[in-house]
Amino acid sequence: MSEGAERGPVATAVRALALAGGAVLLATALLTCFSVGRRWATSQPVQGDFELVSLGSGLAVLGFLAHGTLRRTNILVDSFTTWLPRPVVAVIDAGWMLVWAAVALVLAWRLGIGAAETLRSGTTTMVLGLPTWWAVGLGACGFAMVALAALHATGRLLRGEEG
């Protein structure tokens, strides 16, 4: 990816989301260390630590996914296209990036519906009783950002700015 690819509102939003994901992942790591230390010292873990770690880890992954999509650092299999000219490969990659954008949009849509359902039903975590609608809603926003990043990357591929 060229230097200019990291400019603009989409890149800025994706970078901010990745930094937020990193902060959440760091917080879950610190919580895990604290809980293990507390369990060792007092035989009592932090109440609901596994709930917080699973929520935080899931949200952190979604924070990184849009960044990986925009940078095209996800898994690429090019075994069958290495012999093709670069412009042809870029069009093929753009097509697959559009498929990824569509998948991410469907996931965002369904997670949005899931967030509304968990809010309506009052679903909570088992130990702490935390409502879960907000995490599902943030997941929907994360996948919407993935779709936006994929569309942005598609445009760059089709303009010949990367590939």
Rank of each mutant, 00 (worst) to 15 (best):
E3I: 13
E3S: 14
G4N: 11
G4P: 00
A5P: 00
A11K: 02
A11F: 05
A11T: 06
R15P: 00
A16I: 11
A16E: 08
A18G: 09
A20E: 05
A20L: 15
G21C: 12
G22L: 08
G22K: 05
A23K: 02
A23E: 14
V24M: 11
L25N: 12
L25P: 03
L26H: 02
A27R: 05
A27P: 08
T32S: 14
C33N: 10
F34N: 03
V36A: 15
V36L: 08
G37F: 00
R38F: 00
R38C: 01
T42F: 12
D49E: 12
D49G: 03
F50P: 01
E51G: 04
E51F: 03
V53W: 04
S54P: 00
S54L: 14
L55S: 02
A60W: 01
V61A: 15
G63L: 09
F64P: 06
A66G: 09
H67Q: 14
G68S: 13
T69A: 14
R71F: 06
R72P: 02
R72G: 04
R72Q: 12
R72S: 10
R72T: 01
T73G: 15
L76Q: 15
D78M: 07
S79I: 06
S79Q: 11
S79R: 06
F80A: 11
W83Y: 05
R86L: 14
V91F: 04
V91K: 15
V91C: 07
I92M: 13
G95P: 01
G95I: 07
A101F: 08
A102K: 02
V103E: 03
A104F: 14
L105T: 15
V106W: 07
V106S: 00
L107P: 05
L107K: 06
L111P: 00
G112S: 13
G114W: 05
G114R: 07
G114I: 10
A116N: 09
A116C: 07
E117W: 08
E117H: 15
E117G: 04
E117I: 14
T118I: 08
T118C: 07
L119P: 01
L119Y: 12
L119H: 14
R120C: 01
R120I: 01
S121M: 04
S121E: 14
S121L: 10
T123D: 14
T124S: 10
M126D: 13
V127N: 09
V127I: 13
L128T: 04
G129R: 06
L130D: 03
L130H: 03
L130F: 13
P131D: 11
W133D: 00
W134E: 02
V136Y: 02
V136A: 06
V136E: 01
V136D: 00
L138H: 10
A140V: 04
A140W: 03
A140P: 09
V146F: 12
V146P: 04
A149P: 08
L151Q: 03
H152A: 13
H152D: 15
A153N: 02
T154Q: 05
T154N: 02
G155L: 08
G155Q: 10
R156Q: 12
L157K: 11
L158A: 05
R159E: 09
G160K: 07
G160A: 09
E161I: 07
E162I: 11
